[in-house]
């Protein structure tokens, strides 16, 4: 298992937002996390990425205990994410958004950066090439020098995924990647997610409300309701699960 979540829970001032939650993601797997609004899906993402520290339980990633580690450290270890409400570096160029992601694997120091010697030239040239290639995968090469904030919505979502991949993750967390997209954009997104998985050799865990997308590309699903896991398994099984249907439709 690449990611193992053991009995995690978190309490916000008396409210148990997530409790006794277990899940796992294998290498080269696309897993979906679904559930009604307010079920605690994004909270799970925040727990996995160190935005929140779980009040109980353990998170093991790549054989390391990452429970309570800082967000940037968890990213360095190999978990990258996107956000439900897109968070780009809006006043920076598209390519610089991606370049920030590569920063953690670069070596030249502050002095070399200021006086442009040592590794500076070589690393910056390599970086530029890598960043352009990454943008190309997402069809953003043409907009490389544009301000990220000026991109249309769909491309902003793609850029966020590209930036997450720039950090070199083993596991990619996507928080509602298809939100606000029309059916043809969603179809394109599905292709991209499959491509990303194969090309970048990452496992993917995604939160999504668009059931056609979830049923189509996820190999396994976890269903969350009121902070607890109510079902898990392959999509066909989940589709007919009585608990899941009643959670979505109400009793």
């Amino acid at each position: 298992m690449l990611l193992e979540v053991n009995d995690i829970g978190i309490t916000f001032g008396g409210l148990r937002a997530v409790m006794g939650f277990n899940m796992g993601v294998d290498k080269d797997e696309i897993v979906g996390l679904i559930g009604p609004n307010g079920a605690g899906k994004t909270t799970v993402f925040n727990l996995l990425t160190g935005v929140y520290t779980p009040t109980e339980g353990k998170i093991i990633f790549d054989q390391k205990d990452i429970t309570g580690k800082k967000t940037n450290v968890i990213n360095n270890l190999g978990i990258a994410r996107t956000f439900q409400n897109i968070r780009l570096f809006k006043s920076m160029s598209v390519i610089d958004n991606v370049k920030v992601a590569y920063n953690q694997n670069m070596k030249y120091n502050e002095l070399q950066g200021v006086f442009k010697f040592g590794l500076y030239k070589k690393e910056e040239a390599e970086l530029h090439e890598k960043a352009l290639n990454l943008l190309d995968v997402f069809g953003l090469k043409g907009e490389a020098e544009e301000n990220a904030g000026n991109l249309p919505y769909g491309k902003q979502r793609k850029l966020e995924i590209a930036r997450a991949l720039g950090t070199g993750p083993k596991l990619l967390l996507l928080d509602e990647p298809a939100a606000g997209m029309n059916p043809s954009e969603t179809a394109e997104l599905m292709e991209i997610i499959r491509l990303v998985k194969d090309k970048f050799r990452v496992s993917i865990l995604l939160i999504e409300h668009d059931m056609s997308l979830v049923m189509n590309i996820c190999e396994r699903l976890y269903v969350l309701d009121y902070g607890s896991l109510i079902a898990s398994g392959p999509p066909e099984e989940i589709k007919n699960n009585q608990d899941v249907i009643s959670a979505y439709l109400g009793e």
């Binding site: 990425t49 956000f83 570096f89 920030v100 930036r163 950090t167």
Partner: peptide, 18 residues
């Protein structure tokens, strides 16, 4: 570049490993 990214969005910057 990293410093500018913090100005633009601190949370995203941290999530990008900064």
């Amino acid at each position: 570049r990293v410093i500018k990214s913090i100005r633009d969005n601190e949370i995203a910057s941290e999530a990008s490993g900064v």
